[in-house]
Deep mutational scan, measured.
Amino acid sequence: MPVRRGHVAPQNTFLDTIIRKFEGQSRKFIIANARVENCAVIYCNDGFCELCGYSRAEVMQRPCTCDFLHGPRTQRRAAAQIAQALLGAEERKVEIAFYRKDGSCFLCLVDVVPVKNEDGAVIMFILNFEVVMEKDMVGSPAHDTNHRGPPTSWLAPGRAKTFRLKLPALLALTARESSVRSGGAGGAGAPGAVVVDVDLTPAAPSSESLALDEVTAMDNHVAGLGPAEERRALVGPGSPPRSAPGQLPSPRAHSLNPDASGSSCSLARTRSRESCASVRRASSADDIEAMRAGVLPPPPRHASTGAMHPLRSGLLNSTSDSDLVRYRTISKIPQITLNFVDLKGDPFLASPTSDREIIAPKIKERTHNVTEKVTQVLSLGADVLPEYKLQAPRIHRWTILHYSPFKAVWDWLILLLVIYTAVFTPYSAAFLLKETEEGPPATECGYACQPLAVVDLIVDIMFIVDILINFRTTYVNANEEVVSHPGRIAVHYFKGWFLIDMVAAIPFDLLI
């Protein structure tokens, strides 16, 4: 008679799926529990143990900040960024110097990925580790590398530091407007667009060049630039800015003055950032001319202004700041037409079709709590990747769950009947059967004279019903998954307890 339990259901295979997918890609990662103190490590794979030199037993239950890997060259700011990422709910990448158990130093890129439950609360953290440099290539500990984003994938490793954006290309926007319009339909740009040429040739750093990471940081200074100062900065030398009595002219307006920039070969870094931020506020060169004239017309309804409409929906549905990093990277690809469009465009503009998908598509409701890094690593669709929660398995109709209350009560009843059979069957065979043979035949009273025979008949009927119930009862397979398919249940029961239950259900007393 089957006594099969499996009270692990309803099970959740999400954690096993993450481990299996990460292991298949030869990654070095740990999984931490966000619900406990210090976000203790609950799993670390073999790749991480080989990377740091510690065994799994030495890593388990330690804080996922990996303070046991810190050393003299470990930056405090990087460690603080990892700790801050564990307090938030967004994906974050941090470069930090770690030390192995043998004392060797290596520069590592740590990717902190939160995993949320159905309520939107962070319950786990996945920390992925990628070695960037070994100890002989690690720089000085005073050099802070965590304020910069990861290198873009479309640049060669040897040319990542030679990417320079020439400031004269930004200063000569109005001069290039006529050349853009003359391109017409034969050019790649839309009317009114501004073409910015980027020099990728390796050259020595000069005062006129600005690194790509500095251009990325310009967006942080746009908020500090007032509207009046932006307007004066875009007017140009024809209309000098008016300053109040006793007030000095704005240095932001002076930063885009061609006369002032041409007199000296070098520009201050602050002026460069502010000038680029001011130019980015204009949607095209037409807006710059309109600002000089004193009238700013409404933005025209053409394809170039609607190019950012799908980007707005993608940004609203993005799951991490990696989408913004990807957008900034692609927006700086050289030799393309940049349409400086305000994100607050007309909502009635139709979304044009684009061959290049900048932001990841909208994630469906079932995966809105899973970050983009987890979705990318697992390579699963929205119909396959579940949320991290207890999910009731989908069972067929008329199927009994093996952990249901009805099955528990039924098993206790069958257990009592088995005990009765084990006690009274030998007793009936030894004593009652002998008395029946010696006594007179009682054929007239039937079952009324033999109450134990009636009980034995009921017990046999219950055993037959138990066999039928076992054909529709779920079970737990070797992978700790609840199986509810009727065919698989029948095959599993035939290979197991079916023969024993059938022999126990045969009414031998009635056959004798």
Rank of each mutant, 00 (worst) to 15 (best):
V94D: 01
C39S: 12
L51T: 05
T152I: 06
V279D: 14
G314P: 07
Q11W: 07
N12L: 11
S266N: 01
S283H: 08
V222Q: 06
S209M: 05
S354K: 04
S266M: 14
V196K: 04
S206L: 09
A169F: 06
A382R: 13
F129D: 01
A83H: 04
V194Y: 07
K362E: 10
S243E: 15
M60G: 01
P227H: 01
H147F: 04
S320A: 11
S55A: 06
E91T: 07
G24R: 07
E118M: 11
R5P: 05
T319A: 14
T162G: 14
V377Y: 03
L87V: 14
A34L: 01
I363N: 03
M218T: 04
G71A: 01
L155V: 15
G224H: 09
L338R: 14
I126R: 03
S331D: 15
L296W: 14
A282D: 07
D355W: 07
G47Y: 06
A9Y: 15
S179Q: 06
S318I: 07
R77A: 13
Q376D: 03
G381W: 11
H368S: 12
L170R: 11
T162P: 15
R159A: 14
Q75D: 15
C66R: 01
E177V: 03
G189H: 06
A121Y: 10
D355P: 12
H221L: 10
G139C: 10
A89L: 08
T329A: 13
Q61E: 14
V325L: 14
V132N: 14
E37F: 10
E95P: 06
K101R: 13
K373E: 06
P297D: 12
L343T: 15
T17M: 07
L316V: 07
G184K: 06
I96E: 01
L225K: 05
M291N: 07
R27W: 10
F68P: 01
A293G: 10
H7T: 05
S250R: 12
G103A: 07
C108M: 01
V132A: 15
T367V: 09
S207P: 06
R269T: 07
F48M: 01
D259M: 04
D197Q: 06
K362H: 14
S278R: 09
D346C: 09
V41E: 01
D323N: 13
M124W: 13
L248I: 15
M124T: 09
S304Q: 15
A268T: 11
